[in-house]
Design a binder for these strands. Sequence first.
DNA 1: TCTGGGGTCCTAGGACCC
DNA 2: TCTGGGGTCCTAGGACCC
Length: 419
Amino acid sequence: MFALIDCNNFYASCEKIFNPKLKNKPVVVLSNNDGCVIARSKEAKKLKIKMGAPIFEYKELIKEKNIYIYSSNFALYGDMSIRVMKTLESFLYPMEIYSIDEAFLDLDDQNINYLTLAKDLKKRVYKWTGIDVSVGIARTKTLAKLASEMAKKQGCPVILIDEKDIQKVLKNTDVEDIWGVGSRLKKRLYRLGIYTAYDLALAESELIKKQLSISVLKTTLELNQIPCFKCEKNPPSKKSICTSRSFAKKIEIFEDLEKAISSFVAIAAQKLRRQKMQANFLTIFISTSFHSKDPFYSNSCQITLPIATSFTPKLIAYAKKALKKVYKSSYLYKKAGVILSDFTSIDYLQKDLFSKLDEKNKNDLMKIIDQINYKANKKALFFASEGIEKGLKKSKIKSSSKMRSNKYTTSFDELLEVK
DNA sequence: TCTGGGGTCCTAGGACCC
DNA sequence: TCTGGGGTCCTAGGACCC
């Protein structure tokens, strides 16, 4: 048995917890650069504000309906997520943290009352964190997902075990709303005459495997209460690490792009060190705007590193080389990024024959830099290639987030004030 | 004017081996 | 004139998730 616990309107709910005036008010959270809608409170959903839509399309609606708009505040959401997950952990079931706002529990236990448990989960998370969650319980993860969707609509936990209940739900579920089926697969399934989850559950296994893929076959089996996906209690370590941003203002000059790429490398390399890994492969990519009428250009360059490393200066040097290969002048760049991949563990220290610093020195140096930045709670130390504009604030690469709420739970300077 | 960021898995086809 | 059978590995691109 699996339980899926899903936080309702997570980012919007985080904003509401620390700001009582937002109660019962429509709240919207925006992406980087305050571009797209990435979260909506239930009141905002009622106003038909769409997920992923650019916010400028709602300019008038915002004024008219007094909608509260926030820039994303991932320091806050990340910390609230940890609190929710810790609360779920207190129930002592094996747990898989599936995303920032979702977790599966493995309830391999015949003698518990699932509905009571589900209610307890919901109650405790709300009491300890202020976050409202939807709980769905079923024999497979795919069905637990469907159950939690129903729970979200009904406002109370849903246990999906009874065969008749399941059939009823499947008949009322469009294939696109199944976990693992997106818009492309939906079209292909429609062509095969499969419109609802019920149709898919009854479909011939051979046909599904031949016409679609093994993944869809697994989903089909899961709809029939045959588990194909386990609870991944110890998440496998990452296979790639990506840091990318859209720029608030378009960038044309090579040096500016170089600063951006360098700072992305620095962030990615730090994530890499946190995983105790070294990268063998580096990709950089740059692109102009997808929406603008300016000439379009997008390119990427990949480099196999001679020796695996997590040493930021080394990675920056390679990234700069890569950038030179793909940069073309007179284009207006809107987005860039860095991907590190093909990792080896930091325990296998391959020495660089030609380096003046040995690997231990490099690792110690980066460790100190990471520690200082962690303690300072900001980038106190950084590399010159990243650009030395004051606090990066005036720089072109800094993304704008004009309406960010305080880091109430992670910064002493931004604690909630009560008057 | 203004349109996110970060991941994983699967498959087909090419290159190569004996 | 007629040209096999069996396998692995790699990669790009497509699809999905939140």
